[in-house]
């Protein structure tokens, strides 16, 4: 009987998968940047309670949170070309629908999905900063931008980091669905490899390992950032004792 489970293959196939790791990372990082930027905008609209925009944002967040990400990937994959066709039709332009690299569809879908989830985290984090501190900053004569940059943002980030880390881990794994937009990243590569060797289970095991290690790395990174940004538990011990001028 030949090997039912070839455990060596689990490890020997990893290098072939890692060839497509840059695609996975690219998807993750770009979608993350879009997610945070758009998420911040949505949070801002909600906090400022800007009419019309607020309703649009709420609707957007509701739809994105209420539909599976795989459906959203299909919607962008088929929706963007249709939108482009309409645009060409009405403006007499000649954009090539097939010229759009497939990774764009995945980035748009993942980024917008991320923004909907992160917007709520960011909004809650900004609103968690005491109003009194904002009043103190106003009283000092800071303008709106200075208050945001110096008072709200640094404290909101500390609050938001754990949740944003969590959602980033979701995104890393969410990129595995990008194959539905015909993007070849590590999951798609795994399927291709398995398709030729019929060793599906072994390769899925390798994939699981790769994602797991990647996730551990993200977890550690965010734990480190969280520690760095928080106010220390203890009063800092000072080097050189130059501070105790009045004892």
């Amino acid at each position: 009987m030949s090997k039912i489970f070839d455990w060596q293959l689990v490890f020997t196939e990893i290098p072939a998968l890692l060839k497509y790791l840059p695609v996975t990372l690219n998807l993750t990082v770009i979608a993350l940047v879009i997610g945070w930027a758009v998420g911040l905008l949505i949070a801002f609209v909600k906090i400022r309670n800007i009419p019309v925009l607020r309703q649009i944002c709420s609707l957007f967040v509701s739809i994105v949170r209420g539909t599976p990400i795989i459906v959203q990937l299909y919607l962008t994959y088929f929706g963007i070309p249709i939108a482009l066709k309409y645009y060409n039709y009405y403006n007499g332009t000649d954009f090539n629908v097939n010229g759009v690299p497939p990774i764009i569809f995945a980035i748009v879908a993942l980024g917008l999905n991320q923004s909907a989830f992160d917007s709520e985290t960011i909004r809650a984090a900004i609103q968690s900063v005491e109003k009194g501190q904002v009043e103190a900053a106003k009283s000092l004569g800071m303008n709106g931008f200075q208050i945001f940059r110096r008072v709200l943002f640094p404290q909101a980030v500390t609050v938001a980091i754990p949740s944003l880390g969590n959602s980033l881990i979701g995104l890393v794994k969410g990129t595995s669905l990008a194959f539905t937009c015909s993007v070849v990243e590590i999951t798609a590569q795994g399927k291709i490899l398995a398709g030729s060797s019929y060793r599906y289970f072994e390769i899925y095991c390798s994939l699981a390992l790769v994602y797991w290690v990647l996730t551990i790395f993200v977890e550690r990174l965010f734990a480190y950032i969280e520690k760095k940004m928080s106010v220390p538990e203890q009063v800092t011990v000072l080097k050189g004792g130059a501070v105790n001028e009045r004892n």
């Binding site: 005491e130 009194g132 501190q133 009043e135 103190a136 900053a137 106003k138 009283s139 000092l140 004569g141 110096r150 008072v151 640094p154 404290q155 500390t158 106010v231």
Partner: peptide
Amino acid sequence: RRYTEMVFQQFNLFKN
């Protein structure tokens, strides 16, 4: 606001 400064009941120091 730059001519006047406020001291609050709840201190309102910047916590970070």
